[in-house]
């Protein structure tokens, strides 16, 4: 409750500051629209914004889901197999030298202007953080637990599934929390490179028509989307915290 109050307070303060800035400087509305104007636009264009937010939300959610599943699987594979570690790990590390943003035009070329190029962007951005957070946690399983399992006569695969995986879930959760923040960034970049729907697209469109108030309204919608997503993922992850 106090947290909600604090956040509300800070937001209110920022809005007042924003309004004061606009009043004091007299900046034209196509550079910095007043908050009253932005909220007015947000309300009047709510159907339009909601429609585009739904598209971006779908991209982010699917990217998050698929990316998290792939990251989970890759980390498991790496933990289970020496061969996979020897082959995949250098590739994964090397792949990090390529800025994911730079792939956006290529993904659009390959996957088209629709949802999938954005899902792929979101997925690629979160894949490495999820994989490495979970893999590191899998490899950090307390040796005492592993030795106990060995004395009990466990097979390596059962040890992985029944001890290492549950022990590493807090690590997976922290990867997932990061992913919830990164995934919207990926989707928006994808939309900027080429799209006909989504909040990123709407921002570019509004910008082109000098509708700065709409741009800000779309930005606010995006921020809310990211916050809600983060809160939801955080709630989901709490079960794995210890």
């Amino acid at each position: 409750m106090t947290r909600v109050l604090r956040i509300t307070g800070v937001t209110l303060f920022a809005v007042i500051l924003w309004q004061a800035l606009v009043s004091a400087t007299g900046l034209p509305r196509f550079i910095l629209p007043a908050p009253t104007l932005v909220f007015d636009t947000l309300w009047k264009s709510r159907a339009l914004i909601a429609q585009h937010a739904l598209v971006t939300g779908t991209e982010v959610l699917l990217g998050l889901l698929i990316g998290a599943a792939l990251g989970f699987g890759t980390a498991l594979l790496l933990a289970a197999s020496h061969l996979a570690r020897a082959v995949l790990r250098p590739m994964l590390v090397f792949s990090q030298a390529v800025p994911v943003f730079a792939l956006a035009p290529i993904l659009t070329l390959w996957l088209g202007y629709g949802l999938w190029s954005k899902i792929a962007m979101a997925l690629l951005i979160i894949y490495f953080p999820v994989t490495s957070a979970f893999f590191d946690a899998l490899m950090r399983t307390p040796t005492g637990w592993l030795e106990l399992a060995k004395v009990m006569g466990s097979t390596p695969l059962r040890m992985l599934w029944r001890i290492q995986v549950p022990a590493a879930m807090p690590g997976f959760a922290s990867g997932l929390r990061l992913a919830a923040v990164y995934a919207p960034i990926g989707a928006i970049i994808g939309e900027w490179v080429g799209a006909s729907q989504g909040l990123g697209y709407l921002m570019l469109l509004a910008n082109g028509r000098a509708k700065t108030d709409l741009m800000f309204a779309a930005l606010i919608a995006l921020a809310v989307l990211t916050l809600v997503l983060h809160a939801a993922v955080d709630r989901l992850c709490r079960r794995w915290d210890r």
């Binding site: 005492g144 637990w145 106990l148 399992a149 009990m152 006569g153 466990s154 097979t155 059962r158 040890m159 029944r162 001890i163 549950p166 022990a167 879930m169 210890r242």
Partner: peptide, 23 residues
């Protein structure tokens, strides 16, 4: 061992049955 090595994600009976599960 000195450390009990119980699995925090399992309830007590499941902790006691860990060996069977692992085999």
């Amino acid at each position: 061992a000195q450390s009990d090595l119980l699995m925090p994600w399992l309830d007590l009976p499941e902790n006691v049955c860990l060996g069977a599960r692992l085999r």
